[in-house]
Simulated scan of single mutants.
Amino acid sequence: MNFKLIINSKFNKELPCCKNSCELYDQITGECGIHNKIDTTNPQIYHRCFDKLPYFSYSYEDCSSISEEKFYEQDDINFFEIAGDASSLTYSDYPLKPDFSSNRDDAIWFVASDRSFGCWIINHYKKRLMPVTDGTVVRGWNKNVYQSPYPLHNHDSSKSIASRMAWYVDNEGYGQYVLLLNGKISMISSPRPAHWKK
């Protein structure tokens, strides 16, 4: 169990989560309107989601100090099924070909050398990234965030969303998995912590 410590809070507010902060949260079913079977009370999930629509304005400046170490510890990242997606695909060429288009001009399809998985690659780094191995990779704020033009590990996503996974390389060269929905990044595996420095 992870605890989040808020010290000297100016306001007695809970950390934002889907249940208390997102318009996509369905009060009747108690579920997210986009992703299936998520913990709607977990602030980490809310923080990873790009589809969140806030009920109220919240900023971390409301607190003078937040213990971020536990908040950003996310080694076992998983991505959630999309509501309305079929749980299985009757015919699929994955991983050799994607089952869904990326709906983006800047994405190319990548297949691992052992053909164990595939994903889209979206590279926003302006410099050239050299090929790396697991032993030479420069790690970021999480063990699965690193400088590489392509992923070195499998995203292990379910078949219904595997063709929506993308390896996103940011403008500083750090890559991580994201989930694409209608051409937009819907969920990120590990948002960059405010306190993290190279």
Rank of each mutant, 00 (worst) to 15 (best):
C49W: 00
E23C: 09
Y60P: 08
K19E: 04
F100N: 06
E73H: 10
N20Q: 09
E69N: 10
S87R: 11
Y55V: 14
A107H: 01
G84E: 12
G84D: 03
C22A: 12
I28A: 13
D99T: 11
I66W: 03
N36L: 15
S67A: 06
N36I: 12
K37F: 10
C32N: 01
S21I: 02
D114L: 00
T29Y: 04
D105G: 04
Y72A: 12
T40H: 06
E73N: 14
S65C: 07
T90S: 01
D75M: 07
Y58H: 14
D39P: 00
L24R: 08
D99V: 05
Y72H: 15
F79C: 01
F80D: 09
F71I: 07
R48K: 15
A86M: 07
E61T: 09
A86H: 04
K70M: 11
L89R: 02
P95T: 01
F117M: 04
N20A: 11
S65M: 01
I108H: 12
E68T: 10
Y72Q: 11
P95Y: 00
Y58N: 10
S116H: 02
N20H: 14
G84L: 07
C18T: 07
E61Y: 06
I66R: 04
L53T: 13
D51L: 15
S87F: 14
Q74P: 00
D51F: 09
D75Y: 02
I28K: 15
I66E: 06
K37R: 15
P54N: 14
S64A: 13
C18A: 08
E61W: 03
Y25D: 10
S88Y: 12
P54V: 15
L96I: 10
Y25I: 05
F50C: 14
D93L: 05
W109I: 02
E68M: 10
Q44D: 03
F100C: 03
F110G: 02
E73Y: 08
F117T: 08
C32H: 06
C18F: 10
E23T: 07
P54R: 13
R104I: 04
N20R: 15
D105E: 12
Q74N: 15
D114E: 02
E73G: 11
T90M: 02
Y60N: 10
D62R: 11
T90E: 03
Y55R: 15
N78F: 11
R48Q: 13
F110Q: 00
N36E: 12
A112T: 04
D93P: 01
S101Q: 08
D85W: 02
E68F: 05
S113A: 05
K52Y: 00
F80H: 05
I38Y: 05
A83L: 13
Q44N: 04
S87H: 10
K37C: 08
C17Y: 04
A83R: 06
W109K: 06
G84V: 05
C22D: 03
E61Q: 04
T90Y: 00
I66A: 03
I45C: 06
Y94G: 01
T29M: 12
F56S: 15
D62K: 05
S64Q: 05
